[in-house]
Each structure stands twice: as C-alpha cells, then as structure tokens.
Design a protein around this nucleic acid. Structure first.
Lengths: 241, 241
DNA sequence: CGTTCGGTTTGACCGAAATCAATGACGTCG
DNA sequence: CGACGTCATTGATTTCGGTCAAACCGAACG
C-alpha cells in the first residue's frame, strides 16, 4: 500500500453501504474508480445544511446514510418540504444552473458529494450511469406526483395516516429484517412534529391534534414523542383514503 | 382508419412542429429515421383518453399539438390533475411497468406515440436521446415540486393568480410572437373551471368566486367563460405570493 | 433537586374553503 | 324559436384547519 491517500478511496465505493442500490450500481470496477476519483464522502450532523435554495448548483450527492429533507421557503417565510431522502437516494440538480431547493440533514448523515460539473461530464460519458439516474428521476417524479394528491385532495387525518404508513414502509425493512408479527409495527419517527407539518402542508397544532385522535381511536400508540407503534398497518392505511 | 393515422414516414420528423424542442432535438438524420420508424402520429379529439391510470405501460408519446392533462382519481372519486402537458412535452412512463396516471386530451391534439418497449430499446441505444429525456424529466420534477408549494401552502387566491400567470406564460409565446404592449395579455383558457379546480386542489365554486374577485379587483377581465385578459401580469403575479 | 428551555399538547376562537342549493348563461339540436 | 343540458355563478351554511394563547413534559444543566 504505497499511497494511503489513493488506495483507500479506490476501495471506498466497493465497501459503500449503498453500492448496490444507488445510481452507481451498474458501473464496473474501472468506472467506479473514475467516479470515486471525483467524489468524496462528507459527514453531516443533524440540522446541518448541505445546499441552499437558489445557490449556484455546484454540487450533487448520493445519500449513504441518514435522512435529509429537501425544502423551500414560501414568500411569507413558511416552509414546504418537497421531499425526504433516504440512503441510496440522489440529490441536487445535475445539468442545471441553480439548486431548486435547500437540503438539510434531519439525522446525522453521510453523503457522497460531487462537483456538479465533474458529475455532469462523467454522466455524459457513461450512459449506464445516466440511465440509472434517469430511472431514479422518473421514479422520484412518480412519487412526487403521488404526493400532490396528498397535498391537494386529502384532509389532515388522511395526510397523517398516509405519511405514517409510508414512513413505516420506508423505515421498517431497514431497521428490522424479519417481517413483524401480523400487522403491527413500531418505529422511531425521523421527523419532529413541525417537520411533519411542513411535509404535509399543515400546522404543528393540527398534526398534534390528529396524532392524538389516531391514538384515541386505537390505531396507533405514542410511547414517546418520537416513538410510534402502529397497531394495524392495514387499518391505518384505510384512514389514508 | 389506421392508415389515415399513420402518415408517410421519413420526412415526417423533419417537418414536425416540435422537431427542435422535443427530446428528438439532438438526434441526427439517421437516428431520426430510426425513431420515426417506431413511432406514429395519432390525432386526439378534445376529451379523448390516451392512457388509463394503472394500465400496463404500453405506450409513451411526445405532444406535437394541443394540451393534455395527466390525472389520477382519489379513493372518493374526485380527481387530482398531476400535470398539464403542452407541445414538445413528453408523456408516459418509460422503463416502467404501469402507467402512473391517466392522460386525456383537453383540446384537440396530436401526439407522436411509441410502443414503450420499442422506445425503451431505442433510448438505451441512443444516449443522446436518453440524455434529453433525463433533462426533461429533471425539469419536470422541478416544476412538479414547485407545484407542491402551491398545493401545500397557498390560499385559493394565490393558487388562482399563480395558475393564471403560468398559463399566460406558457400560452402567449406560442399564440402571439411579438411581445404585447407592456404588461397586458389576453388568451383563451385551455381548462374549464372544474379542471382548474382539479389542478389547484380546490372546488369549482371556490375557483369561480375568486375569478370574480380578481375581476372585481381590476386585475383581470373575463369577456367570456374561456376568455381571459390580464391587465397587469406583474400585479397578478404579486397576488400569487 | 429545582430551573429552564424547546418541543408538544390542548383549548378557545375565527376564518377560508367546502358543501348544499338555487339560479343564471350559453350552446345545441329538434 | 324554444327546450334542454352543460357549465358557471351566486348565496347560505357548515366544517375543518389555522391562529392565538396557555399549559405541559422531558431532557439538559447548574
């Protein structure tokens, strides 16, 4: 091992937690080495901002670990969260001039960042990567459009029920591999009440009230502020319309 | 019948109204010929459905002329429009199993349709096309996310003002090339009141009431049901928050 | 052990938009 | 032309979620 600087980075992608799920999944070893050369790991603490809305789009990134939010400010200063990203998700705006949303770590996180211009060039030269990125973007567009239905047509209870079900589905497989007995789930919510409100287009009070209501109706349990148990995923999903 | 819909091929793309704006823009003549071979023109009447939500994703298409809506039904039977597409826009779900939304022509329209499997293969073999598609999808995702702010955080008046401004901006350059005197615009609305409600996550009554209010406030004129004049685009945009 | 502080819950009240209902305008077709 | 059907407007009322305000709770700290 003649160079501690280069060698470790070469193995880096191969050891990456999201190696097989992120956009790099289809690359061969050579390509991975090239990609690795232009990227670097970055650790973020909960609350730390990675990108600011409206800034020049200088970087893009892959999420390796943790949860981050994409959000934008309204003219009157409120926030609308545009998306929550999880490990293996891609973020930032390739082929674009400006970053269309702010990115902030919600939990401690690790991301693999690239200078946008480097990434753009690499993508154009490697159609397999670009294809992966396209598939991911199409899937993200589908998800975003489904979220429009939530924002446009659901009432507060439906929004909340839908959010809790989706969160459970995105979080449980990672935390606990074996399928739980029956329909029950228990998890730690990644978002505060205020953040949930910002995702759902509600206020914190409305979120709180309906959480209590769902609890009183016996659909969920709230052993702690961030703790959630779902008594019946199916019943909860039904509340989501 | 079918022979009337399939028009003679080779020169077709070159004469296409959206040749330089759609995803085919970067293709050379040979590629265009190949693409042309797998696509065909289809005319749609206003109200005609091109794709049904949940169906197998058999076709994708480019909009050549007219306006179409992408929409989905909520569990209780109401509709949420997910997007409005205009000439040169792409629609359908490449690389996907099922169509995630219904597509219906709002005006008479012409589209250039491809069997999805043909299109997918062609795209994978022609990175320039795939790149165009990626750029378009990224732009569409940005637009969709901005719409989330409208749905999640704006009141009825802001939604309506924002929608009218955006419609004017997307429609005017096409209809009338020279820039209008100052700030005034006049156009024919592509959507009915009900459709506007479905785009904005409102009811028809609320749309109607706020249209009247904007008129009474002197921001717009309504010479007919589908006719709109904007007295000051700037003032109207300010109402949009 | 009490204090403090941020996040959360709960309550009282209000207002914007939905709902229910009636009327009005317009195009079309006999 | 007149009758009908569709779409749009207007009005009355209700309801859901927002706003303002107060109480609450748990963690961190002196």
């Amino acid at each position: 091992m003649d160079s501690l600087e280069i060698e470790p980075s070469l193995n880096f992608c191969q050891a990456c937690a999201v190696r097989n799920r992120a956009i790099c999944a289809d690359l061969d070893e050579d390509e991975l080495g090239l990609l690795n050369a232009i990227g670097r790991r970055k650790r973020l603490q909960a609350g730390e901002q990675l990108l600011w809305e409206g800034d020049d789009a200088i970087i893009v990134a892959n999420v390796v670990e943790g949860v981050l939010k994409l959000s934008t400010q309204t003219a009157d200063g409120r926030e609308q969260i545009l998306g929550i990203v999880y490990p293996s998700d891609f973020l930032g705006r390739p082929f674009g001039e400006t970053t269309p949303y702010g990115v902030e770590a919600i939990t401690d996180a690790q991301v693999c960042v690239f200078r946008r211009t480097d990434f753009d060039r690499f993508a154009r030269e490697h159609p397999r990567l670009e294809h992966k990125l396209l598939e991911r973007t199409l899937a993200e567009l589908d998800r975003t459009r489904r979220w429009m239905v939530l924002l446009g047509r659901m009432n507060a209870e439906q929004k909340l029920a839908t959010y809790l079900v989706e969160t459970a589905e995105r979080l449980i497989p990672a935390n606990c591999k074996e399928s739980e007995l029956g329909d029950e789930r228990s998890l730690t919510l990644p978002l505060s009440r205020q953040q949930m409100a910002d995702v759902l287009g509600l206020t914190i009070e409305t979120v709180s009230r309906h959480m209590t209501k769902l609890k009183n109706d016996g659909l969920i349990g709230l052993p702690g502020r961030r703790e959630l148990t779902i008594n019946s995923l199916k019943a909860l999903a039904e509340r989501g319309g």
